[in-house]
Design a protein around this nucleic acid. Structure first.
Lengths: 137, 137
DNA sequence: CTTGACCCCGTACCCTAGTCCGGGGTTTAG
DNA sequence: CTAAACCCCGGACTAGGGTACGGGGTCAAG
C-alpha cells in the first residue's frame, strides 16, 4: 500500500492527458497547487489521477471548467456551512436532472429508430427532432 | 394553421439565438440550406425553430456540432438503409447511456451531500470524487 | 562527468463555436 | 420618394480550452 507522489509527467501519462493540460488546470484552479520538491518539481498526490478522471467525465457531460471547479469544491468545511453546500448542491442536482431527462428523451427517439424494420417506408423528416421538443429556454 | 416561412431575423428571434449563428450553422451543415426569395433572402421553413431548440439542448449535453449533425442526420432514406441507421443509432445510444450513468452517479453523490446535517464533522476531502471513479478510458 | 529524459516558466499558437463589421442591396411604412 | 429596418456576403475578431515551443535547470544511468 504505497502512497508515493507523482511528477507531472507520470500523472499526465496515468490520466491520459497532455502534461500542459495539467499546468493549465492548475492555473484555472481545477487542480490544487501541489507541493514542490526542493528543485521546484510538482509532486502530485496519487489521487490526483482520480480528480482528472472526474474532470474528463464532467467535460464530456457538457460542464465547463468553471462549473467543474464548482462541483469539485462542493464540500463541507470550516468556511462553508452545510446549509450553503446544500443550497449549491441542489442547484446542481436540478441541472443534472434536466440533462438526464433530455438524454433519455433523445435515447427514446433513437431506440424507436432502431426498431424501424428493413423495407419500411423511408422516414423523410428527421425523427430525432421529436425528442427535446420543448419550448423551455 | 399557417405554414409561413421565416426570414433569418425572425427565426433568430424565435429561437433565441444570434442571427449570425444561423448562417454559421448553415455553413457547418446543421441547418439545411433554405430556399431563397427572388432577392436572395433565406426563407426558413417554420419547423427550423424546432431544429434549433434541439441543437441548443444537445450542446448543453456536451455534444459537439459535429456529433449533433450526425444525430440530426439519423433517418431512413433511399440512400441509407435501415440497417445502417440502426448501427449508427446504437452507437449513439451507448454514448448516451454512458452519459446518463455518469450524471446519475454525480447526482447521487450530490444528494448524499445535501443530507449532511448542520453541525456534522467537516468533510475534508472532496466527496464529489466518489462519483465517476472508474478506470475506463 | 556527461547525456538523455524530465521539469520549470512564459509566451505564442490552435481549434471550436460563435460574434461583429462594413459595404452594399431590399422591403416597407410614411 | 425616402428612411428605417432587414438581408447578403466575406472577412476579422473573441472566448474557452487546450497545445506547442524554447531557453534553461535537474536527475539518474553508464
Amino acid at each position: 500500500m504505497r502512497m508515493k507522489s507523482l511528477t507531472i509527467g507520470h500523472l499526465a501519462r496515468e490520466a491520459g492527458v497532455n502534461l500542459e493540460t495539467l499546468r493549465y488546470y492548475e492555473r484555472r484552479g481545477l487542480l490544487p497547487k501541489p507541493p514542490r520538491s526542493a528543485s521546484g518539481y510538482r509532486l502530485f498526490p496519487s489521487d490526483a489521477a482520480r480528480r482528472l478522471r472526474f474532470i474528463r467525465h464532467a467535460k464530456e457531460l457538457g460542464f465547463s471548467l468553471k462549473e467543474i471547479r464548482e462541483l469539485l469544491s462542493l464540500r463541507v468545511s470550516r468556511t462553508t456551512t452545510s446549509r450553503d453546500i446544500r443550497t449549491r448542491a441542489e442547484v446542481k442536482i436540478a441541472d443534472i436532472d434536466a440533462k438526464i431527462k433530455s438524454l433519455e428523451s433523445i435515447e427514446k427517439t433513437l431506440r424507436k429508430l432502431t426498431n424501424v424494420c428493413e423495407g419500411c417506408v423511408p422516414v423523410a423528416e428527421c425523427p430525432i427532432l421529436q425528442s427535446l421538443d420543448r419550448e423551455d429556454r
